[in-house]
């Protein structure tokens, strides 16, 4: 594929997302200011050369907070998607390989059961039992990714199971697990990549929501959702405190969604031809 044929949505989305990923990566090594230093004298500074995006009510540098907050968001969403892929895809493939069997029914009805609970309620349940932390947020979001990936994998696998090369593989004596791994999985990776980008953006939103209600990463670890929550009381006097983390969330999610759409267009040969 030449650069010219890359969908514009993919370019814009990838650019937006990589800015945040880059900021998060830089923050591991360096931030403009330390994020755990409370300097009350510096509180609520406007934009300035020393503090490009100002400081918050405790005198912490907003830019540094956003950079480290990106770490939290991306890590939580990434691991949650990882859980979803690692558990959901094998389940979906197993269901497709045994279509119509009891196993298929059990897996898919189990999925429906998870879908029947709102994710926030489960998250509250988990944190009520084990205490709020980033790990528990990951767990809560991850659980809800499992049925999503199981469904996508099963849906993508079913039509492939009817193709002749699967029958050929069966006459070559290959079992269901082997066929799923060698033939089915590589042919549904497109679908999974697109779904993963979308789930990734949903994960960032979910992390922000959990942190906002205080169930995500705990202080002093910076988090976009908690920055929003803390800025709430000062929304009329210092609106930038709320606008900046809000903007970060919006841009990151927008970037990932655009990337997901773009990837779908780029990876699906049928859509490519239609353009």
């Amino acid at each position: 594929m030449t650069l010219r044929s890359v969908p514009p949505a993919l370019l814009i989305g990838a650019a937006l997302s990589s800015v945040f990923v880059l900021l998060a990566l830089i923050s591991f090594a360096w931030t403009p200011h330390p994020v755990d230093g409370v300097t009350i004298a510096n509180r609520l500074q406007p934009f300035s050369p020393t503090h490009p995006l100002g400081t918050d009510q405790l005198g912490r540098d907003i830019l540094s907070m956003l950079m480290v907050g990106a770490q939290t968001s991306i890590a939580v969403a990434l691991i949650a998607v990882g859980i979803g892929v690692a558990l959901g895809v094998p389940l979906g493939l197993a269901a497709a390989a045994n279509r119509g069997s009891l196993l298929d029914e059990v897996i898919m009805r189990g999925n429906d059961l998870i879908f029947a609970f709102p994710s926030l309620v489960i998250a509250i349940l988990i944190t009520a039992r084990y205490g709020p932390s980033a790990t528990n947020a990951i767990l809560a979001i991850g659980i809800f990714n499992i049925p999503v990936f199981a469904r996508v994998a099963r849906g993508g696998a079913l039509p492939i199971w009817t193709l002749d090369y699967i029958l050929a593989a069966r006459t070559a004596g290959k079992g269901k697990i082997r066929i799923s791994a060698e033939h089915i999985f590589p042919n549904i990776t497109n679908l999974l990549i697109v779904q993963a980008t979308i789930q990734f953006s949903l994960g960032i939103l979910a992390e922000a929501a959990l942190s906002y209600v205080g169930l995500g990463a705990q202080p002093p670890i910076p988090s976009w959702g908690r920055m929003l929550a803390e800025a709430q009381t000062m929304i009329y006097t210092h609106p930038m405190l709320a606008v900046l983390p809000g903007l970060a969330i919006v841009l990151m999610v927008l970037g990932l969604n655009l990337m997901g759409d773009g990837l779908r267009d780029a990876l699906d040969p049928r859509l490519r031809r239609a353009r």
Binding site: L163, Y165, T171, E182, H183, N187
Partner: peptide
């Protein structure tokens, strides 16, 4: 099984692309 093999109708669907 190696004693018996099959050739299918559709030359486009019979290979993993």
């Amino acid at each position: 099984r190696a004693n018996m093999q099959i050739v299918f109708q559709d030359p486009y669907g019979s290979f993993n692309p």
